[in-house]
Simulated scan of single mutants.
Amino acid sequence: MTLISPACRDALQYWLEGQSALSGASQNTITAYRGDVGEFLAFMTLHHGSPQGLGALERISISDMRAWMAQSRNGGVGARSLARKLSAVKSFYRWLAEREGFEATAVLSTRSPKFTKKLPRPLAEDAARAMIDTVELQSSDSWVATRDVAVVTLLYGCGLRISEALGLTGADAPLPATLRIIGKGGKERVVPVLDAARDAVNTYLQLCPHPQEPAAPLFRGVRGGPLNPRIIQGVMARARMQLGLPATATPHAMRHSFATHLLAAGGDLRSIQELLGHASLSTTQAYTAVDTARLMEVYNRTHPKA
Rank of each mutant, 00 (worst) to 15 (best):
I4D: 00
S5K: 02
R9K: 08
S23N: 13
S23P: 00
S26R: 11
N28T: 07
I30H: 13
V37N: 01
E39A: 14
E39N: 08
M44H: 11
L46R: 15
H48V: 12
Q52W: 06
G53I: 03
L54M: 02
I60V: 13
I62H: 13
I62N: 10
W68A: 00
A70G: 06
Q71V: 14
Q71I: 05
R80P: 03
S81E: 01
L82F: 14
R84T: 07
A88S: 15
W95P: 03
L96F: 08
F102W: 13
R111V: 13
F115A: 09
F115T: 11
L119C: 06
P120M: 13
R121M: 09
L123H: 02
A128M: 07
R129P: 08
M131N: 01
D141I: 10
D148P: 00
V149H: 14
A150G: 04
V151C: 03
S163G: 14
A165V: 02
G170D: 04
K184E: 08
R189Y: 08
R189N: 06
V191F: 01
Y204F: 12
F219A: 00
R220I: 06
G225M: 05
P226Q: 07
L227C: 14
N228C: 09
R238Y: 04
R240H: 01
R240Y: 04
A247R: 14
T248G: 02
F258Y: 09
G266D: 14
D268L: 07
I272E: 01
Q273C: 06
L276Y: 02
H278V: 09
H278C: 07
A279D: 09
L281M: 10
A286G: 11
R294M: 15
N300K: 09
R301Q: 15
K305A: 11
